[in-house]
Simulated scan of single mutants.
Amino acid sequence: MLTRIDHIGIACRDLEATVDFYSRTYGFEVFHTEVNQEQGVREAMLRINGTDDGGASYLQLLEPIREDSAVATWMAKNGEGVHHIAFGTADVDGDAEAIRGKGVRVLYDEPRRGSMDSRITFLHPKDCHGVLTELVTAATPDNQHATPGDTQH
Rank of each mutant, 00 (worst) to 15 (best):
G27S: 01
W74E: 00
L59F: 08
T51I: 07
Y26R: 04
V41K: 03
G50K: 13
G55N: 05
T51S: 09
F28E: 12
N49M: 14
Q60L: 13
T51E: 10
N36V: 06
T18M: 01
Q37M: 08
D68P: 00
G50C: 08
V30A: 05
T25L: 10
R42M: 04
I48E: 02
Q60P: 05
D68I: 05
M75N: 07
R24N: 13
E43L: 15
G50P: 07
D53Y: 06
I65Q: 02
Y26N: 04
W74G: 03
V41S: 04
G40K: 03
T18S: 04
T33I: 14
E34F: 14
R66V: 06
V19R: 07
Y58S: 07
L59R: 01
E34L: 10
E34S: 15
E67G: 12
Q39V: 03
A70V: 15
L62Y: 02
R42P: 04
L61W: 01
E67A: 15
A17K: 13
E34C: 15
T18F: 01
H32Y: 12
R42Q: 10
Q39G: 02
F21I: 13
A72M: 12
D68A: 14
F31M: 14
D53R: 03
L46A: 06
R66G: 06
E34N: 14
L62M: 12
F28I: 10
A56C: 12
A44R: 03
V41M: 14
V71I: 11
N49Y: 06
E63K: 02
R42S: 15
E43P: 03
G27Q: 00
R24A: 11
D20L: 05
T25E: 10
W74P: 03
N36L: 13
V41P: 04
E63Y: 04
Q60R: 12
A76S: 14
N78R: 08
S23Y: 10
A56G: 15
V35T: 12
E29G: 11
Y22A: 00
T18D: 02
R66T: 07
T25M: 11
E43F: 13
V41Q: 02
P64S: 07
A76Q: 14
V19W: 09
W74I: 02
E43D: 09
L61M: 01
G27T: 00
E34V: 09
A17S: 13
A56R: 09
D68R: 00
E63R: 03
A76C: 09
E38H: 14
A72K: 11
D68G: 05
A56V: 06
K77R: 13
N78S: 14
V35H: 01
I65R: 00
T18Y: 00
L46G: 01
G55L: 04
K77H: 11
R66W: 00
V30M: 06
L46H: 04
E38C: 08
T51C: 07
L59H: 03
K77N: 08
F28Q: 08
W74Q: 00
M45P: 02
E34H: 06
S23V: 10
T33W: 06
L61V: 02
R42Y: 02
E43S: 10
N78L: 10
Q37E: 15
L59P: 00
W74C: 01
Q37R: 12
R47Q: 13
I65E: 11
D20Q: 07
E29S: 11
T73W: 10
V41T: 09
Q60D: 08
G40V: 05
E38M: 09
E43R: 11
G50Q: 14
Q60W: 10
G55M: 06
G55Q: 04
